[in-house]
Design a protein around this nucleic acid. Structure first.
Lengths: 208, 208, 208, 208
DNA sequence: AATGAATGAGCTTTCATTCAT
DNA sequence: AATGAATGAAAGCTCATTCAT
């Protein structure tokens, strides 16, 4: 009489494995992360991982898709809200900062894959990033048309915004800063971004 | 009589090895970069690398110090010039973008080490980053005091500036954008940053 | 269900590896013995050895402990028997000679480690040798006090006895002598030793 | 104008290299002894060694021939003297002990090669050992015939004598004993041997 | 379904030897 | 004659993956 494994059981175990993998990879990097240790952390046998994922890379890709979609969802939600643009940007900054705290391991793996050099591994990161990027670009195009924000090349602007959001979220990891000021930093960043794109800006004339 | 090898010869060969290593590591990452392949690329024997570097990690650290000091030198030079602040920022953005093009392999290794998870390897990156960070922070503190730029927490500001500079420099690599627009993007970024910190900014009051 | 591996299975496989290692090391020496070849000889994969021993040195140390304890056991058993001293010595000589035949590979590794120069590797050899040495010395002290054997410095005497036992056991290996005369040579040695320590010269008649 | 190198210069430099090699090999064993370090110790360039010896093994073989012939000379000289047999044996023991002190590095290499497992390397050791062995055996055959010593199988006896001599000489190295008692131990050994082979037990009184 | 013992490809590093100078 | 920079074969060890149980 075989054990009955529902889809829900399966998803749950995939999740457990993913969490364990995120913890390992966030500490040692993909190449040095040890399948054996991941299995131990997940409380299962080494071979069992291969019943849920085809191989090590599959685990990583799944992990990157997970965090990638999570980020895209945040971007989507904040951008499409009924708030004003200054508020949208503040919401984005806060949501990013919070996500970097709540899912720190996933986020670190995401960042290292994003800036790492391996093209294969970078693929799902690029996929989701593009999705968020286009989503944001489209919203900016409309906002610029409606005069809500200063005229820029929307693509460059979208990139700058996403880039600064990630930089800010990374700050505590690299500089070992206290996490307690996360909210304040998010506010500062939102202020900074908004100043850079607010319609009233004329100061840029200074530059060629 | 033995073959005479001058210090200059030695430095030259170290440079050749470093270039080959940068090319490999920029393509495959540190862990997957193969000493054998690096030697082939450098046109020397496998063992020869160990006459110039103590081990694989030593090659990487040397490489990271090389690019780290190069970046710091750029920051130093741009910040301490006699230009106005808007111009300083534009110089920075252009110099960064240019460096990312001229030393693309080194820069990519630098970025992946910066955002990677390996603490040992990240050490020289952090060292140089801190140097540039403090350099920039000090300059900002003075500029704020003299009313040249809008009041901010200088550290957060320094981080935002460095972060956006690197994000911008990375753009072509991640989005496969044309390199021909590098200058324009650098200008856009400089404009954006300057708007965010110009003394005339009052729009930030909009945000809580 | 996982394959069940009992402690007995584990010990058995350790033994198989040890035998293969002894055969290799006895032929080529520790430094030249090849893990790959040892694995082949043991009929297992290269990596499997590392499931049973932490590294190459661990294999050797285990091997040396095995033969060291075996020798000590022989010394202990022969010395503490109820036999007369001439008989004890004859038993020792015969047991040594037999052991050198039965466990020739182990014994050769033991001897080469004993007389080799590597201190780390010599450590377990020295440990067991000291144990046998003190055991024998203590027995000789008592025998001398009871007038059973001629007055000597017991330590020197113990060393001479152990030394001649090992020399004799080595004889076939070095001189390529026939093994068929092993028993006779052991008898000769026992006679020789006994003459050297008997309280009077007549006792040598006791031995065959 | 080429430098003129006389045969004497050549021999002298060969000797210097041999001394350096003996020091290294006595510390680390043949396999781990480093040609580079030997060259440094000898105060010459790495490549120079290959002008005097064809390869590493050649250095070792030459070294073993050197100590092997030295030992054989001692045996020859002591055995063929006009002394009585008790005195001959005492002379042998003392000369061995002294040689082990004066040429400690050479002797240790000799011993480790003798008891080591490598047949190729053991070859010159075996050659000289055989020579001494046959020399001693022949002398014993005659002594037995002339009734000067107790009736034994001369080969076994020769081996026992050589074996105990080497055991004794090794004692300080293995047990870390003081070298100051070397003479006394040599005397003890001579006494022991003589008792074992004297025609009657009273003869041991002859020795101090 | 679950396990972990077994495997072997692939890696870094060492070092005896060569050879241009 | 003398040197030491350069070489590459060879070795120990790790770890993702397989598969018998």
């Amino acid at each position: 009489m075989p054990k009955i494994v529902t889809d829900s059981d399966r998803l749950q175990k995939r999740r457990i494995i993913l969490d364990a993998a995120a913890a390992e990879i966030a500490r040692y990097g993909y190449d040095r992360a040890n399948i054996n240790t991941i299995a131990e952390r997940a409380g299962i046998g080494r071979g069992t991982i291969y019943l849920y994922y085809t191989n090590k890379e599959d685990v990583l890709l799944s992990l990157l898709n997970s965090i990638g979609s999570m980020i895209d969802e945040i971007v989507c939600k904040c951008i499409n809200s009924d708030q004003s643009w200054p508020q949208k940007i503040r919401d984005l900054a806060l949501a990013f900062a919070q996500m970097a705290l709540d899912h720190n391991d996933f986020f670190r793996v995401h960042i290292s894959a994003l800036h790492g050099v391996n093209r294969d591994i970078g693929q799902p990161v690029a996929f989701w990033l593009m999705k968020s990027f286009h989503r944001l670009t489209a919203a900016l195009v409309q906002a610029i048309q409606e005069g809500e924000i200063f005229l820029y090349d929307p693509q460059t602007l979208a990139w700058i915004i996403l880039g600064t959001l990630e930089s800010m979220a990374l700050l505590p990891n690299i500089l070992n800063l206290s996490e307690s000021l996360t909210q304040e930093r998010a506010n500062s960043l939102a202020t900074f971004i908004w100043q850079g794109i607010a319609p009233s800006a004329k100061n840029n004339m200074v530059l060629g």
